[in-house]
Each structure stands twice: as structure tokens, then as C-alpha cells.
Simulated scan of single mutants.
Amino acid sequence: MALTLDHIVIAVKDLDQTIADYRALGFNVLQGGDHPGRPTYNALVVFSDGAYFELIAWRSPSPGERWWELLNAHGDGIVDFALLPPDTATTVAVAKDRGLAYSGPHDGGRVRPDGERLRWQTARPPSHDLPFLCGDQTPRALRVPEGNARVHPNGARGVASLALAVKDLDASLAHYRALLGEAQAANVSAPFLQPGTGARVGTVTLGRSTLVLTQAGPLPGTAGHAASTQLGTRGEGPYALVLATDGATPAPPPADRTHGAAIEFAAA
């Protein structure tokens, strides 16, 4: 089974306000619940392709936790993303054999508002150009609801692409080839220069979603400049995304309504 995009993490200071804003933008937002042993709680925006947004907030400060540190220093925004492994422990072991020192598996879980207890295992990457892994130990449908939960008034169907800022494109593409292995290695492109931006770019195809890795370029108003800004503030990692839609494509919502997540829409 291939690795696929599982979810994108958006850290926010006020979860209730974030839920209200995303609903006003035409997203179907679900209450997620609390994470036992952590001061975090969340809400979900689940898409028909199986990927979702995790809107996460903290009930109390959490110094030393990277997501909270980014939120505290830079405000609301995208802080991470996860891939879904067929088996977390096996994927970690294989990644280590290929030179990627993922830590884990680490046990995790969530208690939904209806009392259902979910269990999963995560693994953390050796560098922030790579995703973490999140594999279920209880049925995934309990964590990622199906059916009408995935239907959005704005027509959003799934994550078409996710933009990542990286320091060294060649090294990052090599990391992804090692993570994905021979079966998915062809899904990792060679690096290329993006015309008119001064940026070097590479892509990684994960099912219906594409990761767009950008090594910063100097030209204002371009993807390369956006990647440079990301590197200078939050560091390597995701900073913008495109959602596939049915029919009409809404205008890009303002960042204050999406709580720092740069979101665009494109017809599927």
C-alpha cells in the first residue's frame, strides 16, 4: 500500500472562532475532541479524497512543543502535515534502513465528543522538510468520518497540492525517494527552475495530491518569494495549498478568515 496524504495541521489560538470562520467560508467543520495527556483539542475539515485539515488549539501553554512554539511566535497558520502509512512500525523500520531516522512509533489518541476513544501511532521525521506519519490502530473511519461529513457547501473535494518551503531541494527530493521507496520513486520529479520566479522546484505525487517543494527564489510576488518568507519565519515545511472543487471555484479567502493558511481553489 502506497503512502498517501493523511492530514494538514493548522495551529490556532481560538478554536471556536476558527470553526465559525471556516464554516462561514463554506466548509463543513466537525468537532474533533481532546488528546489525552496533552493540552490540545481539535476540529476537522474532512474531504472526499480522504485527506483533512486538523484545526488544533491549546488549553494551556506547551513550551518545547514545536507546533505550539510556532503558533506562539508567529500566530495562526499551517505547522505540519502527515502521511498515512500502511503500518507505522514497518514504515519506520524501512525508512531507517534507507537512512531516514524517523522516531517512533509513538502512541497517540483522541477522545471524541461522543466518548469514542481513538488510537493511532505517529512517527516523527529527522527534518522538517518531511512529513510525520500517522497510522490508525482503531478504524480510520472513526478518526476521519465518511459520508456527508465530507460534503462542503463551497464544493471543496480534496487537496490538489500542498506547497513546501525547503532549504536544499536536491536533498529534500532524495529524502522523499528514500521515504517512498522504489514502488513510488517515480512519483518524485527531478528538480527544475520555475520560470519567472528564480526558484527551483520539485514535485512529489501522492495519489490525488501533489507536494510542491520550492527552494526559495528572490523575486517578490512569486512562489519562490513566498517560500523564502516561510523559511525566514516558520522554517522548512508547508505554507500554502490548493483545494480541488466541484464546479465553480471560490476566490481565495483572506488569511485572517483561514487563520494563516494560504488556500486557493481550482476546478478538479
Results as ranks from 00 to 15, higher is better:
residue 173 L to T: 02
residue 43 A to L: 05
residue 164 L to G: 11
residue 83 L to D: 03
residue 105 P to E: 03
residue 57 A to G: 11
residue 196 G to K: 04
residue 169 L to T: 09
residue 257 R to T: 11
residue 253 P to H: 05
residue 68 W to P: 09
residue 183 A to K: 00
residue 40 T to N: 06
residue 136 D to T: 09
residue 114 D to H: 10
residue 121 Q to W: 11
residue 50 G to H: 01
residue 189 S to Q: 00
residue 244 A to R: 08
residue 154 N to Y: 12
residue 182 E to L: 05
residue 53 F to G: 00
residue 174 A to Q: 09
residue 212 V to C: 06
residue 66 R to M: 14
residue 136 D to R: 05
residue 204 V to W: 00
residue 140 R to K: 02
residue 180 L to C: 05
residue 268 A to T: 15
residue 37 G to A: 08
residue 238 P to Y: 01
residue 137 Q to R: 13
residue 27 F to N: 07
residue 103 S to H: 07
residue 124 R to A: 15
residue 19 I to V: 12
residue 251 A to T: 10
residue 14 D to L: 04
residue 153 P to Q: 02
residue 9 V to M: 00
residue 114 D to P: 14
residue 137 Q to N: 15
residue 266 A to D: 13
residue 165 A to Q: 05
residue 260 G to V: 04
residue 109 G to Q: 07
residue 264 E to Q: 08
residue 17 Q to W: 06
residue 51 A to R: 00
residue 48 S to Q: 15
residue 263 I to C: 04
residue 125 P to A: 07
residue 265 F to Q: 02
residue 38 R to Q: 14
residue 44 L to S: 03
residue 262 A to G: 10
residue 108 G to D: 04
residue 186 A to I: 08
residue 142 L to C: 13
residue 198 G to E: 05
residue 251 A to L: 05
residue 10 I to V: 09
residue 101 A to C: 11
residue 225 H to M: 14
residue 188 V to W: 05
residue 150 R to S: 13
residue 190 A to Y: 07
residue 216 A to L: 06
residue 2 A to Q: 04
residue 127 S to H: 13
residue 60 S to N: 15
residue 268 A to L: 14
residue 82 A to E: 01
residue 99 G to V: 10
residue 102 Y to P: 03
residue 23 R to C: 12
residue 175 H to F: 15
residue 221 G to Y: 09
residue 212 V to S: 05
residue 20 A to E: 10
residue 48 S to E: 15
residue 117 R to D: 10
residue 167 K to P: 13
residue 169 L to C: 09
residue 12 V to R: 01
residue 135 G to F: 04
residue 20 A to H: 07
residue 135 G to C: 06
residue 223 A to K: 13
residue 182 E to F: 03
residue 254 P to A: 06
residue 107 D to Q: 13
residue 19 I to S: 13
residue 127 S to M: 13
residue 61 P to Y: 13
residue 140 R to D: 01
residue 153 P to Y: 02
residue 54 E to D: 00
residue 222 T to D: 11
residue 190 A to G: 09
residue 172 S to G: 15
residue 247 G to V: 13
residue 130 L to E: 02
residue 53 F to N: 00
residue 23 R to M: 11
residue 72 N to A: 13
residue 153 P to R: 03
residue 23 R to G: 12
residue 71 L to C: 09
residue 114 D to L: 11
residue 235 G to F: 07
residue 65 E to L: 05
residue 92 V to R: 01
residue 160 A to Y: 11
residue 186 A to P: 11
residue 71 L to K: 06
residue 15 L to Y: 08
residue 256 D to M: 11
residue 43 A to N: 01
residue 78 I to L: 03
residue 97 D to V: 12
residue 133 L to A: 02
residue 264 E to G: 11
residue 97 D to P: 12
residue 29 V to I: 11
residue 254 P to Y: 06
residue 243 L to I: 08
residue 248 A to N: 05
residue 126 P to C: 12
